[in-house]
């Protein structure tokens, strides 16, 4: 058996629906059509009452999920693209994220955000929103980079009693494959060493894990051993694993596909500088997309985001210091 990242997301939703009658799926075109990316393909056939097409109303979709969760349901909302969650932003950050704190009543909803860039998708179908949502207290932000994590972390998200923003990367949907799924995954909030090394640490997440591993493989030819840490969950963030890695290597590069101002990479560097300044042999570096909207043309798009080539260049600079 072999399955893709996208199929793992579909399988996880099937399994969530099968396990718990309180789970339901809500989103645009997710019913008979199976979703814009087919992440819910055939699920309505299997669970006709629990896979519901919504109007194009992101605000109401999240509001409905919140209300349903208060009544004991476990909704999974599909945003057609992460970018469109901006239209449901208010309900996410003001209603869902504050609910437990204000009322002592948890709000278990999972919001799936098909995230990140693919060639030709342009400014409004390519965004990475994890940094924006991570800013707000009361949300869990997951960014799976592997087929196995896409599956297990989505199931974990549904069983968690808090609102979860599940950032699944569209670039990984079709080409990332696994032969089988392990019985269990790492717990939420635990980072993973994607590739061990001792000369520098790269902290990254989501699709950038693969770019960073490629860059590390390239540097290996020159004898550099680069450790790649896959955060898996950007909030909660596993500071222990990051600091332990920096303690081994003394050098840190953070890589993210999101825009450069603030965000996850800045947060990682801030935590390492605060708690592990003495571990650093060089100034910590970060690499993000350019500070412009995400371009449409593939030539521009490839130059806008970090790639193995410029991650490699950044690492060489870091190693020279």
């Amino acid at each position: 058996m072999s399955l893709t990242y996208l199929e793992a997301i579909r399988e996880a939703q099937y399994e969530a629906l099968r396990r718990d009658p309180k789970v339901f799926l809500y989103g645009q075109d997710i019913g008979q059509f199976g979703g814009a990316f087919k992440a819910t393909k055939n699920l309505q056939r299997e669970f006709p009452d629990r896979v519901l097409d919504s109007p194009i109303s992101e605000d109401a979709m999240i509001g409905v999920a919140i209300g349903a969760a208060l009544e004991g349901a476990r909704p999974i909302v599909e945003m057609q693209f992460a970018d469109f969650s901006a239209c449901g932003f208010n309900q996410i950050i003001n209603q869902a994220a504050t609910h437990y704190w204000r009322t002592n009543v948890p709000c278990p909803i999972t919001i799936r955000l098909p995230s990140g860039g693919t060639p030709g998708s342009g400014p409004f179908h390519s965004q990475s929103m994890e940094g924006i949502y991570a800013h707000y207290p009361g949300l869990v932000i997951l960014t799976p980079a592997t087929v196995e994590d896409a599956y297990h972390m989505l199931l974990d998200a549904v069983s968690l009693d808090d609102p979860v923003i599940f950032c699944e990367h569209k670039f990984l949907y079709y080409h990332l494959k696994a032969d089988s799924l392990p019985e269990t995954g790492l717990p939420i909030g635990k980072a993973r060493i994607a590739r061990p090394g001792r000369h520098a640490t790269v902290v990254t997440y989501s699709a950038m894990v693969h770019e960073c591993v490629r860059a590390a493989d390239e540097l290996q030819r020159d004898g550099w051993q680069i450790e790649v840490v896959d955060l898996r969950s950007v909030k909660p963030i596993d500071t222990d694993t990051i600091l332990a890695s920096v303690a081994r290597t003394g050098r840190l590069l953070c890589v993210g596909e999101a825009f450069p101002w603030g965000g996850v990479t800045a947060e990682v560097i801030s935590k390492v500088v605060e708690d592990g300044f003495h571990l650093l042999d060089a100034p910590p570096q970060r690499l993000n997309s350019k500070d412009t909207p995400i371009p449409y043309h593939p030539n521009l798009w490839r130059a806008h985001r970090p790639t193995a080539a410029n991650i490699g260049a950044a690492l060489r600079g870091l190693l020279k210091f």
Binding site: A60, G63, I66, G67, A68, E71, A73, P75, Q91, N94
Partner: peptide
């Protein structure tokens, strides 16, 4: 418990009713 952002409770109550129907 209402939030200050007006109109948001309409869909929340709708969702509560929808969950009851589903259950």
């Amino acid at each position: 418990a209402m939030i200050s952002h007006l109109g948001t409770m309409v869909s929340v109550v709708t969702g509560m009713l929808l969950a009851r129907r589903l259950q």
